[in-house]
């Protein structure tokens, strides 16, 4: 049982990590907790289902198109909601983020209804449900393997993008000093908007995976996932991308083991407990740096 829970934890943890890097990247560039990030995750799942049922697209095509749409949603979110507030106090942007979260949730309810929906029958490839490998009493389905390898590839790709590409360097420069980034010729607003796009694509992908895995989507699904991924980002140290990856995996494993050995009712409670303990004992998180709060920052 331990091994099975560990595998479950690693898989769900990988998904948390994919959402958490979105929080942490956006926090890195504009010091904003984007509370609407969970809603992008929700939109990802709904877009995919819509593309399957109305356009008749196969699963993987709908998956890809939905990620692209979520990237565009992320960009719109930044340009319409946050960019006008760049020079305002941070609190204004934070409240706007909460507002956008509520707005998007309700928009989804108007468009898709508030009832739980499944993925259309037969749209998820049938072999996803079949057992791919068995070891030590643990059964892994093809879907497990797909989720695991997809998150791994995404995280690796993200890491390389940030470390090696010109755009990744620009993003790190913006995160460290916006004025200086502008003075070397970086279009700061564009880098911020692209960061939202990247966060949106990854968050959307996570939403599709979870929606398909549990075969259930609903307009408020982004809330709990968002809070948990936020907990993972805080655990890793907000602003640190490797931190968010590790934080997500730790949280997923802690949750799965807690659910397995204590009671599955405690699943959500464990995430919140982890977040509270981290904030009290290591406020900077595992990989974060403690920065003194200055007066003008709030």
């Amino acid at each position: 049982m331990f091994l099975q829970q560990l595998v479950n934890g690693l898989i769900i943890g990988g998904i948390y990590a994919m959402i958490a890097v979105g929080y942490t990247m956006i926090y890195g560039v504009i010091q904003l907790i984007n509370f609407a990030h969970g809603e992008i995750y929700m939109l990802g799942a709904f877009f995919a289902v819509t593309f399957i049922s109305f356009l008749g697209l196969p699963f993987f095509a709908a998956f890809l198109l939905s990620m692209i749409c979520c990237a565009i949603c992320g960009m719109f979110l930044d340009v319409l909601a946050y960019r006008p507030l760049r020079e305002s106090p941070r609190l204004a942007a934070l409240i706007t983020a909460i507002g956008m979260s509520i707005f998007l949730q309700n928009l989804a309810m108007i468009i898709w209804g508030s009832r739980q929906k499944p993925f259309p029958h037969g749209s998820v490839p049938a072999y996803f449900g079949q057992i791919a490998v068995t070891f030590g009493g643990v059964n892994l389905s093809w879907f497990h393997i797909f989720i695991f390898s997809f998150t791994l590839v995404m995280m690796l790709g993200l890491h390389l993008t940030i470390k090696k590409t010109r755009w990744g360097k620009a993003m790190r420069a913006v995160a460290q000093n916006q004025t200086m980034a502008a003075l070397v010729g970086i279009n700061v607003n564009r880098v911020i908007t692209y960061t939202f796009a990247l966060a949106g694509a990854l968050g959307g992908a996570a939403g599709i995976l979870v929606g398909a895995y549990y075969n259930s989507l609903y307009p408020t699904m982004g809330y709990v996932a968002g809070v948990k991924a936020f907990a993972a980002a805080v655990l890793g140290g907000i602003g640190s991308v490797p931190g968010a990856m590790v934080g997500g995996v730790i949280l997923g494993v802690a949750e799965a083991l807690g659910a397995g050995y204590l009671s599955s009712l405690y699943r959500d409670g464990i995430s919140y407990a982890v977040m509270i303990i981290v904030i009290i004992l290591i406020p900077a998180g595992l990989f974060g740096k403690l920065i003194k709060e200055t007066k003008k920052s709030m």
Binding site: K169, A170, A173, Q176, V184, I186
Partner: peptide
């Protein structure tokens, strides 16, 4: 840029 290497700082100059 404190967390970028000397090389990366110079690269960004030629952005």
């Amino acid at each position: 840029f404190p967390l970028l290497t000397v090389s990366e700082n110079l690269d960004l100059g030629a952005y």
